[in-house]
């Protein structure tokens, strides 16, 4: 799965870092560092983190690595 955090929205509440420590870590008090591509093993914790974010700053695409090149020829996912 892939994810991105809108760090303008993010207020460093660290809910994600508590609940999905393999994917989100706090760097200092407020700066968030995360892994944009997470594996199936992290799915459950990522789901918890996404739901818990008080400002809903995390966007996830649960699909695994759909490559744009595969879509060439007009096929969507």
């Amino acid at each position: 799965m892939r994810l991105v955090v809108d760090l303008n929205r993010c207020q460093g509440y660290a809910q994600c870092a508590f609940l999905a420590p393999d994917v989100f870590t706090m760097h200092g008090e407020e700066a968030l560092i995360y892994t944009p591509r997470a594996g199936e093993a992290q799915r459950e914790q990522v789901a918890r983190a996404v739901a818990a974010c008080p400002v809903q700053a995390v966007t996830v695409d649960w699909a695994d690595v759909p490559v744009a090149a595969e879509e060439a020829g007009g096929h969507g996912r």
Partner: peptide, 24 residues
Amino acid sequence: LLGRVPADGTELPRRRALDARWRL
């Protein structure tokens, strides 16, 4: 740069399917 994420590991999540023709 910290080495925590590979350089080719930051693809953006899709918010939805695009059904696009890609010329990359």
